[in-house]
Design a protein around this nucleic acid. Structure first.
Lengths: 200, 200
DNA sequence: TTGTTTATTGACATTTTTGTCAGTAGTATC
DNA sequence: GATACTACTGACAAAAATGTCAATAAACAA
């Protein structure tokens, strides 16, 4: 029996492409199998490269995890910044903005990222998010006549609910026999009603 | 130089005590340093016993983690079951019940436990919680005249918010320069207002 | 073509973590 | 006491995970 030595065709990427490829693979692992699946061998395999390649680009598996946090935080910030809060803020527009916020945390791994950061005491990395939130508070809500102080608290409330629902909503809903999106629906319904009551 | 061979005084516990001691140490580690700190050597050290002792009682470090999940879930169920919802449910009593619920998730590690389960795809272990929730829904709320269907959804809403706020509330609050309990205050305030509006 | 650069890799070395085992030492019973 | 039982432990073995290094090969330039 002859062993098949296929010369294993190499793919040569630019450093940026390669890093991005590896981080994307790691992100999938994180979302699908949790943080403890971010092992060197697993990440390399998922990315379709050798272990040494991962280390060549990041130096250590720890650095991969840190870089992944940074990238996902960056994406999250982009999502937050993209939220539009019309100046006159009619109810429908406000609802759409909140829906976008909740989607940002539930689809893909933003909520899972947040849980990961929370469990590993890496919340300090969230300064970028903080700045984004405050920018939204100032530029996009302050000009509606709502005082900044209250705008910040409403954002705190909304973000807390969005990330919590994003992480736990689907599981808890199905746990008690409801469709997975039920917790989010209920939460959004309540949040909107509450915001409306504040306007009156 | 003579090496000091103190014979290292042994503590001999009953198997139950020993298991409990080890699980308590593990729980502290989980709450303070996250799931990835639940290594054999760390758990043993925190419990003040040898590595082999942990394995003697649990067989593997994995079994320790599973046992810890079970125990914390049991504690959580007890907390939920202890919630009293008076039959006539005056606003103040309802507020107290919800406060208890939120406390159950924030103090100590219930919310962190939930996040751990979520990230590791172990949500299937939550059947006990499910049963507790449904028992509360039936026995303690149904007799207030609220239909079971709605009671379950209100509990889903409350639990989702409680666990989300318990996990993320403190960090997010301090992140934007508020006292750590601010997110919980805001959430409870909204939730109570919403429940009251439903009664009208 | 020839040479330069460097992304890539397999083989190996190191470290970390987990698990095994035979012997030790508390506790209870006779 | 003496004996039995077993919780407990240190020393060691095994496995898993991370990291090193010299060689290879893809892209590009002269």
């Amino acid at each position: 029996m002859s062993i098949n030595n296929k010369p294993s065709p190499r793919i040569r990427r630019s450093p940026e492409e390669s890093r991005s490829n590896i981080l994307s693979a790691a992100e999938s692992l994180l979302v699908e199998h949790g943080p403890q699946s971010l092992r060197l061998a697993d990440v390399a395999k998922a990315a379709g490269v050798a272990n040494a390649t991962v280390l060549h680009h990041f130096g250590s598996i720890d650095a991969v995890q840190k870089a992944l946090m940074e990238r996902m935080i960056g994406d999250l910030v982009d999502s937050i910044m993209a939220i539009e809060v019309p100046a006159d803020a009619p109810a429908a527009a406000r609802a759409a903005g909140l829906k976008t916020l909740f989607d940002a945390f539930e689809t893909r791994g933003a909520a899972r990222l947040a849980a990961w950061l929370e469990l590993t005491d890496e919340t300090s990395r969230l300064t970028l998010v903080r700045e984004a939130v405050q920018e939204v508070a100032q530029k996009k809500i302050a000009n509606t006549g709502v005082p900044t102080e209250m705008a910040e608290e409403l954002i705190l409330l909304s973000v807390t609910l969005a990330v919590g629902v994003g992480l736990f909503g689907p599981s808890l809903s199905t746990l008690i026999g409801k469709p997975p999106e039920r917790a989010r629906e209920l939460t959004l319904q309540m949040l909107l009603a509450y915001l409306q009551s504040l306007s009156a």
